[in-house]
């Protein structure tokens, strides 16, 4: 079974609540992701807890890059 990455996305210093979702690929520093109506850049990624089975548990810190129209 391919790895599944459960990622906790957090936007510090903002009212944005962040998100938790599963992904087939891990996020990397510099990636741009869309959450709702905004785009964010990943500035930090680390293991939140050790992997278990096929699941990897990551934390990603984001900064807002743009607001979608």
């Amino acid at each position: 079974m391919p790895s599944i990455y459960k990622v906790s996305y957090v936007v510090p210093g903002e009212d944005h609540p962040g998100a938790i979702l599963n992904s087939g690929t891990p996020p990397h520093k510099g990636d741009v992701i869309s959450l709702g109506s905004s785009d964010f850049e990943v500035i930090e990624v680390f293991d939140l807890v050790p992997p278990r089975g096929d699941f990897h548990y990551l934390h990603a810190t984001l900064v807002r890059t743009s607001e979608k129209p």
Binding site: P17, G18, A19, I20, L21, N22
Partner: peptide, 26 residues
Amino acid sequence: GFVEVLHSGTAPEQSPRTIVHLGKGQ
């Protein structure tokens, strides 16, 4: 898609606050 998780405080005038968005597999 996504779901939005909102929590209301105990004060009646307090509007619900979004705690987190949950995506696929959650």
